[in-house]
Simulated assay, not measured.
Amino acid sequence: MERRTPRSARTPGGWRAGRPGPDGATGDRHWRLDARSAGFCALGFAGLTLLLDWGSGGLTVPRADLWAVLGVLLFTVLRPPRVSAGDGWLAVRGLVRERRVCTDALVAVRQNGSIAIRLVLRDAYGGSVAFDPGILVANPLLWHRLDAGARRSRERGTLRQGESTLRLLGERIDGGTARDVLRASGLE
């Protein structure tokens, strides 16, 4: 008998996050946990401020609305983008829209920022995405998809900027994976 995954564990496209789907797509396996944590933080903030305001005796309907709006605003700031990748593409979905790049036709790869580091990918068709490179570190399957596409871009000659950025990111990911394997096997 075939074991099926419950619908609640599947993404809207039908594939499970962090595992290849029927079309070969894979997603960030930690996204649900991070989004849930953002929701709990926002809910905790709104609840705590409502409770403190009520305890001080100054809670009114407009003030309660203000705390609720600030809680929703906090959630929109904390909610991480959803990163997924397939054969030849990488997508980053925010609150409102999804951006995609063709990893087979990458033109530039850059790292921006010193505190909040963002990896910016641009393709030959004008597509651009930006996301935290820590997502790739935590999801080796996403890194594999991006790396395979970047190699094809190098072979085709479209990748003009960012080979050193990709190499350094690859070394960071491979080193982390090796440490995890050693730790799991008890050799560390």
Rank of each mutant, 00 (worst) to 15 (best):
52 L>Q: 08
110 R>K: 12
148 A>P: 00
159 L>N: 05
177 T>M: 14
123 D>E: 12
167 R>Q: 10
115 I>M: 12
99 R>K: 13
153 S>H: 05
136 L>V: 07
175 G>L: 06
2 E>A: 13
44 G>D: 09
44 G>P: 11
20 P>Y: 11
11 T>R: 13
63 R>Q: 06
66 L>Y: 09
23 D>W: 07
89 W>Q: 00
188 E>P: 00
101 V>S: 04
148 A>Q: 09
45 F>P: 04
111 Q>D: 12
166 L>W: 05
140 P>L: 01
58 G>E: 08
158 T>N: 07
172 R>A: 10
17 A>C: 08
100 R>D: 06
82 R>A: 03
53 D>Y: 03
87 D>L: 01
138 A>T: 02
114 S>V: 13
106 L>T: 05
88 G>F: 04
187 L>P: 01
114 S>I: 10
104 D>V: 08
97 R>F: 12
22 P>V: 08
97 R>D: 12
36 R>E: 13
4 R>V: 10
152 R>V: 00
81 P>L: 00
50 L>V: 14
1 M>P: 10
61 V>S: 07
76 T>S: 08
80 P>M: 00
117 I>L: 15
38 A>N: 10
161 Q>M: 02
131 F>P: 03
136 L>P: 02
56 S>C: 01
131 F>N: 07
175 G>I: 01
110 R>N: 10
127 G>R: 06
13 G>T: 10
58 G>F: 05
23 D>I: 02
113 G>H: 10
142 L>K: 03
68 A>G: 11
182 L>S: 12
84 S>E: 10
103 T>M: 04
181 V>D: 11
75 F>R: 03
160 R>E: 14
181 V>I: 14
154 R>N: 06
91 A>N: 09
159 L>R: 06
165 T>W: 05
